[in-house]
Amino acid sequence: MRTLTIRVRTALAFAVASMVLTTAVLVFVNLASQQSFARTLPVLGRDGGPATRIPSAVPITPERIGASQTTLRVVTEANALQWQWSAVGIVVAGMLAGGVGWFVSRRMLRPIDRITATATRITASNLHERIALVGPDDELRRLSRTVDDLLDRLETAFESQRRFVAQASHELRTPLAVQRAAVQIGLHDDVGGDDVRAVRDELLEQNRRTEHLVESLLVLAEADRGLDGTTQVVHVDDVTAEVVVGAARNAADAGVALTHEARTGPPGLVVDAEPTLLRQLLGNLVGNAVEYNEPGGFVRVTTSSDGIVVENSGPAVPVDEAPRLVEPFRRCPSARSAGRHSGLGLSIVASVVQAHGWSLSVDARAAGGLVVRVGVSPVQPRRDAGRNS
């Protein structure tokens, strides 16, 4: 069943309301006029006595009217015409009110038509267009601003997705090209055993890098998808200690001093989080701090009631470049191992932080390296809640 448009419904509402009000007014006027006329019309007495006034409750009959038949016909005809013209007036008033309602609704809904046309016209290729409605600051203009704000967020998301797809394609194509070149050049017809082993090692390294990149993309997609009620009470101090212990060997091999300091009183830093994503966040922060460091450097991990701080030495990072390192595949040009990582470490950290509603800041140290702060929302653990499994 087809629903009437707002414009038609507004016109009908105007018409019906006008007809109802006009009918009520005219019926009241006609009945009041008849009653007033009945009170002032002289009539003969019952026995031919002097003329009197008809009480309002007594009906007017020809026998009681002290006037000629002509006067009676005039009064009756006037009464009938009064009702007929009242009916015509009601219909005309309804039509005029319907027309006014149509005109007013058309003027009032014109911005809605513009908003609809613009929203229908906008696609992924012209997300830069905006409604930009002008006029008084009313409900329709506020609706227009809300839609424009939504389009701003969509444009930002689409641009980020385009950059991500382009960068991911480039990152995935690079190891594949290296593998193809290694096979074509390294495995020539008279290849020896040493060449085969070198090609094997190169293929394994590129395969490892591709696998790590794909895993990072999956984690990033999982973090962007949201938590969906998968959170639980997690003791951050315990998870941080486990991550630091797991990264101790790599830190020792790189000549980097890795330490963890818990500045929280009992029961420690406890948050409501998704355990796997939290462990991935800490692992990426510690792993990046160890990897992008220098021999003899340090990585200091601190947990406090405010959150987590990972500070590391390393190459100098431009102050304006540090906050942009959370973008996918963004690497610091001065990092010596920029080619070994996927460039998604801090991007995953940012997505995990956003999914949990926490805060993240990445700042450059004056002496080189970074300071990454993750502000969390501590919770009070339940008495029956155990430690992290």
Rank of each mutant, 00 (worst) to 15 (best):
S144K: 00
N79M: 04
A262N: 11
L12Y: 02
G101W: 01
L4Q: 07
T22P: 04
T116H: 12
Q35M: 12
L96D: 00
T123N: 12
L258D: 01
S305W: 00
V326F: 06
H188V: 00
D384E: 14
A198Q: 12
P175K: 12
A13P: 10
W85A: 02
P315N: 10
D195K: 03
A87T: 13
G135Q: 08
R365Q: 11
I348Q: 09
E215I: 04
S86G: 12
D272N: 13
R162P: 02
N312K: 09
T23S: 15
Q84V: 15
G99V: 03
G45K: 05
F103Y: 09
T123L: 05
A223E: 13
G369H: 10
V8Y: 01
P59L: 09
D228T: 06
G226K: 09
T52A: 01
V245Q: 14
I90N: 14
H188N: 09
G297P: 11
N250K: 03
L133Q: 08
E311W: 08
A168N: 07
L277T: 11
N126S: 03
L127V: 02
L21H: 04
A168Y: 08
S377R: 15
N388D: 07
R106G: 15
L269R: 06
F14H: 01
W83M: 11
V29K: 09
Q69W: 01
S160K: 12
Q206C: 02
Q84I: 15
R53D: 01
L282K: 04
I185K: 09
V58W: 03
E274M: 03
L227A: 12
R121M: 06
G48K: 06
S36R: 05
I6S: 11
R53A: 06
L277N: 08
T174L: 15
D47Y: 02
P323M: 13
A247K: 10
E222Y: 04
Q280H: 11
D272V: 03
A182T: 13
D201A: 01
L151A: 07
G89Y: 03
L218C: 04
P55N: 03
V349Q: 12
T120I: 02
V165Q: 10
A177Y: 03
D190C: 01
R300L: 14
V104M: 13
L344T: 06
